[in-house]
């Protein structure tokens, strides 16, 4: 009996030691994940010289407001970086492409899920197949097409293709298959609603949870997109925030405070949004993995 007791105690003891180790590792990686952003934000409050002469892990309490203002002013003076412009361009492109992605993916997923038309299985298989196609390989063809359509130098090449988002269609379709009951559609039909009215007014509200999750991912994808904009948006007045951030590099007249405030400004909105939406984002990532 007593020997059993000892065994148990030692076992719980070793588990405690084990979980302590686990905690240490987990906390280490959690800190590793956020420390760069912390460092970015802290450096944004210091002047260039201080940043380069010591690692600053705390804010510049003494001159917080004025230094941030000074850095910001320095940053705004650059011809290549305008936060307001970049933010506006990013928002314009991202919001419109997200809206298109969400609405049309819902439409497509609904079409495949609800109507038993000829070839729908094939279409769905193709959609699943093209999810795996690397998206960047068609860039030369895409660029020439945009040129011949006269869309180069506009935002449209980054917005219009959002209508066809195979990933989003796939996930919404999976959601519809499990959560949409045909009775509701039947009922709407009996009430005399036409098909588009049924979709827009009756079914779309039911899809909101799935649309929200997919909307977040589509938004993030578009917001962080760099490759296509870097090729398609060459005019300064159209450049999105990531492109402007990228210009922070190519400058040999470096003011580090200005660079860090520029980086921070581009990261800050995402972190704030993430703080509120992280639960949905992580659920979305989990769902993506399991359903595949």
């Amino acid at each position: 009996m007593s020997s059993n007791d000892v065994k148990l105690r030692s076992k719980s003891g070793s588990i405690a030691a084990y979980s302590a180790l686990v905690y240490i590792v987990v906390i280490f990686f959690a800190i590793l994940a956020i420390i760069p952003f912390w460092y970015m934000f802290m450096n944004a409050t210091w002047d260039s010289y201080s940043i380069q002469s010591g690692i600053k892990l705390w804010p510049n309490f003494a001159h917080l407001g004025e230094q941030v203002k000074a850095n910001w002013a320095y940053l705004s003076n650059r011809s290549t970086f305008s936060f307001a412009l970049g933010f506006k361009n990013s928002i314009l492109i991202t919001v419109s492409s997200t809206a298109l992605t969400v609405y049309f993916s819902a439409l497509t997923a609904y079409g495949i899920s609800v109507y038993d038309f000829k070839g729908r299985k094939l279409i769905f298989t193709i959609i699943v197949g093209v999810m795996m196609v690397p998206t960047a390989v068609n860039i030369t063809g895409f660029y020439r097409l945009m040129g011949s359509m006269g869309l180069l130098g506009t935002r449209w090449p980054l917005i219009l293709p959002a209508i066809a988002a195979p990933n989003t269609v796939f996930f919404i379709k999976q959601y519809l298959d499990t959560s949409l009951s045909k009775e509701i559609i039947e009922a709407a039909r009996i009430d005399g609603a036409n098909e588009f009215y049924t979709f827009n007014r009756v079914c779309l509200p039911i899809m909101v949870p799935a649309l929200a999750t997919q909307g977040i991912f589509s938004f993030l994808g578009s917001w962080n997109n760099f490759f296509a904009p870097s090729i398609l948006l060459t005019k300064q007045e159209l450049k999105t925030l990531p492109l402007m951030v990228s210009m922070l590099y190519g400058d040999r007249y470096t003011d580090y405070g200005a660079i860090y405030i520029g980086l921070s400004a581009s990261v800050f909105p995402i972190i704030i949004a993430y703080a509120f939406l992280q639960r949905y984002i992580i659920q979305g990532v989990s769902a993506g993995g399991v359903k595949e």
Partner: peptide, 8 residues
């Protein structure tokens, strides 16, 4: 978190 931040 790092996954949602702009890679650029």
């Amino acid at each position: 978190l790092p996954n949602v931040i702009t890679a650029a």
